[in-house]
Amino acid sequence: MRILMVGHYPPHRGGVANHLDSLVRELRRRHEVHVLTYGPIKPRGFERELVHQVRVPPVYGLRGTSFAFLGSREIVKLHHEFNFDLIHTHFVGTTSFTGVLAKERTGLPLVVTAHGSDLEHTAKLTLGRVYVKKSLSEADAVITVSHWLAKKVMSLGASAVRVIPNGVRELEEVDSGKREVITFIGALRNYKSPETFIELAKRFPERKFIVAGDGPLRERLERSAPPNVRFLGYRGDVESILSQSALLVLPSRREGFGLVILEANSLGVPAVGRRVSAIPELIREGKNGLTFKSFEELVEAVRTLLKPKENRKSGKIGRRVASTYSWEDVAEEVERVYLSVLE
């Protein structure tokens, strides 16, 4: 098959870019996969001929809408050159609407994947809701990365949904001595609730806490943080951070999937996550971690999982859980979706 992927892609950062990077690598074992992404970027050398871009203004609101219309025009041009079999867009909103407009002009089948914040944020905006509903109704197939998201897209008009969770890339453990750090990994934005992590650090002054990530809340968080919290900024070496961690804490108020839970589990690190969205789909209560609703439940969960015996047991189960989420399996499931829309 000759496939066109549309969405954020390296060197862009973030969950969608990481998902797309891993999926594309796996699919390229058997197919020719092109990518259309937001420019300006400098594609990696090994795929320079396969990555295409649309230059858009770096202004929130204008950026996405510009990509929808300019991107659809670019897809038509690329289709004339490469003769794609289908379009697969990632992130429901302006990005998926790019595929809707292109489908109208090319007749190509359209697959749309919902990742999380697209439905939690974009669908609540007046114009964004139009993009979301139109994309879900016009797509030939809709994929979500969790069952929680599947219910969301069904409520927004999708008629049939396939749940295909994210895979976990293989992380190499780094020998960093004793695992004693309590870790937060993620964007420093409101929906990730990093302030909850800072409050947690105040309850455990004898423990080391690490915040790996950046965002608009960083300056405020640093001012309010106790001395046992260290801010690392954005880091690409998640394995070295998790290799020194005793526990991962994910206090997000919403998560379309929560991949960092499985990344932690893959290195034997149990996780504590808020009991919302898709997080309970990944944290099997009392096995690879614990979930919480209230702050006091969080404190108690952390106390429990810091006990050496509980920590070792949950970490061991976590490795087994993470091993069931492979990108090879994800790619095979996605291929089945492709074949269903090409029939």
Rank of each mutant, 00 (worst) to 15 (best):
M1E: 05
M1N: 05
R13C: 00
R25F: 00
R28H: 06
K42T: 15
G45S: 10
H52R: 08
P58Y: 07
G61F: 04
V76Q: 11
I87D: 05
T89P: 07
F91G: 00
V92W: 01
G99W: 00
E120D: 14
L125N: 10
L125D: 08
T126A: 15
G128V: 12
G128W: 05
Y131A: 15
V132A: 10
K133H: 06
K134A: 15
M154H: 08
G167H: 07
R169Q: 05
D175S: 13
N190T: 13
N190C: 03
I198L: 12
E199C: 00
A201L: 08
A201P: 04
K202A: 10
K202R: 15
R207V: 08
D214C: 01
E219F: 04
R223D: 11
S224V: 12
F231V: 09
L232I: 01
Y234V: 09
L248N: 09
L250T: 05
R253V: 04
I261S: 06
N265R: 06
N265P: 03
V269T: 12
L282E: 04
G286A: 12
F292A: 08
F292H: 09
F295Q: 10
E297Q: 13
E297S: 00
A301G: 02
A301P: 00
G315H: 13
K316D: 14
A322H: 01
S326G: 03
E328F: 01
V334W: 09
R336F: 02
V337K: 04
L342T: 06
